[in-house]
């Protein structure tokens, strides 16, 4: 535990950049490669949207259930609350009991909101 290396330099991130570069080039090259290699015979049927062989009706980009949206909003809120816990969790021992209680209060409020959301049946899919 003594040798905890807290410091991190931009140099440490260079390998990540390297890996990113490799990944990007892999993805792009593959796409280009298939584009060049594959045969191209275009027919109208082939270019139409696939709906299990049934006649396509309407545009696919239409409105969808509000529930998904609700989930997205809840995610935004809860995920940000979770972010608050990271620094606390890492330094949890230093904060001791007081920090624990404070975080419990925070989580208590979070939980109250959470229970409210559940009770409001915002997460029920029927």
């Amino acid at each position: 535990m003594e040798s905890v290396n807290l410091s991190s330099t931009p140099v440490d991130y260079i390998p990540i950049l390297i890996q990113l570069g490799v990944a990007v080039s892999f993805g792009v090259l593959t796409i280009i490669g298939t584009h060049l290699i594959g045969p191209k015979v275009r027919t109208e049927n082939k270019l139409g949207a696939f709906e299990s062989g049934v006649q396509v009706i309407g545009n696919a980009r239409q409105r969808f259930s509000i529930k998904y949206f609700l989930v997205a909003i809840l995610f935004v809120i809860f995920d940000v609350e979770v972010i608050f816990m990271y620094p606390w969790a890492v330094n949890f021992r230093e904060f001791g009991v007081e920090g624990l209680i404070e975080m419990f209060i925070f989580m208590g409020f979070l939980l109250l909101g959470f229970i409210y959301v559940i009770k409001k049946r915002a997460l029920d899919w029927d």
Binding site: I66, F69, I73, V80
Partner: peptide, 20 residues
């Protein structure tokens, strides 16, 4: 920055709801 992020998230949530 933490505060800003958290509250911006709340704001976005409400804002999106309003836009919907």
């Amino acid at each position: 920055v933490f505060f800003i992020m958290a509250l911006a998230a709340a704001e976005v949530a409400v804002g999106l709801a309003i836009i919907i």
